[in-house]
């Protein structure tokens, strides 16, 4: 109970509710939920980077790498979701570890755009590789789960629970990690790298650790997305617009809480789905307008709404307690 706090309680409640809801929710709702969990996990990695003072415009690199790594394994006969997602996550993590040696030396716009440059290299490689289906991509066969081979709707139901369990573990893990010395160093590096160095620790090493983590969770999100959609293709997995979506979700969510990224991802999916449904010619306009509204009215993201509500609640209760008693 030592580590239990409001965030973990909230995440646990959300986990139980979604777990139970999985057996009742409509297929299209589950599909949006799956996408939100996958994209939310990527945004969680961006949140960790953001708290360190860094923004990446290229995390589709790891998302796409994780997705393609998992999908390619299905081509050579591996179908177990645990193995595929683990392999996709690990592959993206190893790539982030290697590129991290270069990227940890850059800050601000240079960091953001170097990430984008690397992501576009991956995009270019995929597009030019016939064996990977070029611009069309290729299909991913239905996964099995430790020998269990679900059929029909059970595939998505099982995959949703599978994803839910792992995102819960990752999110609680990140929340606890942010309370450790290494996690807390995000603030220190963001605020003053010189002081961190003169306290005896490498700011670059801190950034590298967080970068690898962000790569791991982006790879996880990509692998999940590949299994959820049953298809990988460069435009929806590795293009720069996908990186933009992750930044969009992070701004939408705010960096106040690890759970916010999933709410942000869900809101993003809903806006996009409904905008495309009801205004197919203007859906990007609606998406952009929503982002503009968030930046103008909720600059700290959706999560700041909860803070505002708490503050207004407490001020109301304090003002009512200050009122003179009625005669």
């Amino acid at each position: 109970m030592r580590y239990m706090d409001k965030t973990i309680v909230g995440l646990s409640i959300a986990f139980v509710v979604l777990f139970c809801a999985d057996f009742f929710m409509a297929e299209w709702v589950r599909f949006i939920g799956l996408q939100s969990l996958a994209r939310g996990a990527v945004a969680l990695g961006l949140l960790v980077l953001w708290r360190t003072g860094l923004v990446s415009f290229g995390h589709a690199l790891y998302f796409g790498f994780g997705a393609y790594a998992a999908a390619m394994l299905t081509l050579i006969g591996y179908h177990d979701a645990f193995f595929l997602v683990f392999a996709g996550t690990l592959a993206a993590g190893v790539l982030a570890y290697l590129l991290g040696f270069l990227l940890r030396r850059y800050r601000a716009i240079f960091f953001a755009l170097l990430n984008m440059a690397f992501s576009m290299i991956l995009y270019g490689v995929i597009v030019k590789t016939e064996e990977l289906g070029s611009t069309d991509g290729f299909s991913v066969l239905t996964p099995t789960f430790l020998g269990y081979a679900p059929k029909g709707e059970a595939v998505q139901t099982t995959l949703f629970i599978f994803t839910l369990v792992f995102t819960y573990i990752i999110t609680v893990g990140v929340h606890l990690y942010m309370k450790t010395t290494l996690g807390g160093m995000s603030m220190a590096v963001r605020e003053n790298e010189i002081r961190v160095e003169y306290l005896g620790y490498s700011a670059e090493k801190v950034i590298h650790v967080k970068y690898v983590f962000s790569g791991l969770v982006a790879g996880f999100g990509g692998a999940i997305m590949a299994l959820a959609i049953g298809q990988v293709d460069p435009d929806s997995m590795a293009n720069w617009t996908v990186s933009g979506e992750f930044v969009f979700i992070t701004i939408l969510s705010g960096i106040g809480n690890v759970g916010a990224t999933y709410i942000g991802a869900l809101v993003f999916e809903l806006i996009r789905t409904y905008a495309f449904e009801y205004a197919p010619l203007f859906w990007q306009f609606i998406l952009g307008g929503s982002l503009l509204a968030i930046i103008m009215f909720l600059p700290d993201g959706i999560w700041s709404l909860f803070g505002r509500l708490r503050r207004s609640d407490s001020s109301e209760s304090s003002s009512s307690s200050n009122k003179a008693p009625s005669p």
Partner: peptide
């Protein structure tokens, strides 16, 4: 660390100075 309190500044200073290896994953 300009946006942090004086207490948090020193807390972080102590934590960074003292932590190494797996201790970095102990609570700040």
């Amino acid at each position: 660390f300009a946006s942090e309190t004086v207490f948090d500044n020193l807390m972080m200073a102590y934590a960074i100075t003292e932590a190494s290896g797996l201790e970095l994953l102990s609570p700040l």
